[in-house]
Simulated scan of single mutants.
Amino acid sequence: MGTLRIAPPLPRIFCLVSGRDDLSLLPELVDAGVSGFQLRDKEIDAWSLEYLALQVLSLVGDRATVVINDHLEVALRTGAHGVHLGQRDLPVAQARAAAPGLLIGATCRSLDDVAQAKVDGADYAGFGPVAHSDSKAGLPAPLGVAAITAARGVLPLIAIGGIDAPGARSARRAGAHGVAVIGSIWRQPDPVLAAKELVDAVR
């Protein structure tokens, strides 16, 4: 008989965090209703990412789901709740074999991608970019909200890419479980107020 795997709760909102963000705001973001954080920083090495993860976990780890992007080994060493893997990262199936208890997300851009991610053992699909985003170089053309509807029903979809509060509401109506955001929190004059607006949008 296989071991029962209990993954952490999947948030409605993932706030992406890098070493350039104001970590002191993280507890306030949790108070505002943000229940997930993804650590993504392409400009630092794995050791620095591990240090960042420990900081974030110390601030919110008992009240929010913390996922490490790209680096399974960092997630395992720090006790993070999960890992999110891009299409050029460690294959999802290998990550699932190595870490049966972690929440695992996979970057997907089509229904076929989502179906394969499920076969490989992912818990959710990071789906996008839904709209235009300048947060990451080399992103493909936006998929649009209709693509969410076309890909729903296989795995929970976390819509990402240029999503503000109205976009988050549209993504939920289209069938997304939730959203992942960067600029709609961190680039706002009041990040905590912006977070509250997003939380209201995905209810």
Rank of each mutant, 00 (worst) to 15 (best):
P11K: 00
A32F: 02
I13W: 03
A97Q: 06
H177I: 00
Y51V: 15
D123K: 13
L157M: 07
L90I: 15
D112R: 05
Y124K: 06
S58V: 14
D70L: 14
F127G: 02
L111H: 09
R12I: 00
S24T: 05
R40M: 07
V83C: 15
R12N: 02
L76I: 15
R77S: 12
I44A: 10
A115H: 00
V119W: 08
L39E: 09
G79E: 12
A64P: 09
G61H: 14
A171W: 01
V179A: 01
D62P: 04
S133I: 13
L155H: 03
D31L: 08
L59H: 07
R20W: 15
G153K: 05
V202L: 04
I160C: 02
D134L: 03
K42L: 13
A53S: 15
A165Q: 04
W186F: 13
L102Y: 13
C108M: 07
L72W: 12
A53R: 08
G183W: 10
A180I: 12
G138F: 11
V179Q: 01
E28A: 09
A146L: 15
G86V: 10
R203T: 02
P11V: 01
G36I: 01
A195E: 02
G144T: 06
L103T: 11
R173M: 08
L29S: 03
A53P: 14
A125F: 04
P140H: 04
A147I: 04
R40K: 06
G101D: 11
M1D: 14
L143A: 12
D70T: 02
R20T: 14
N69R: 06
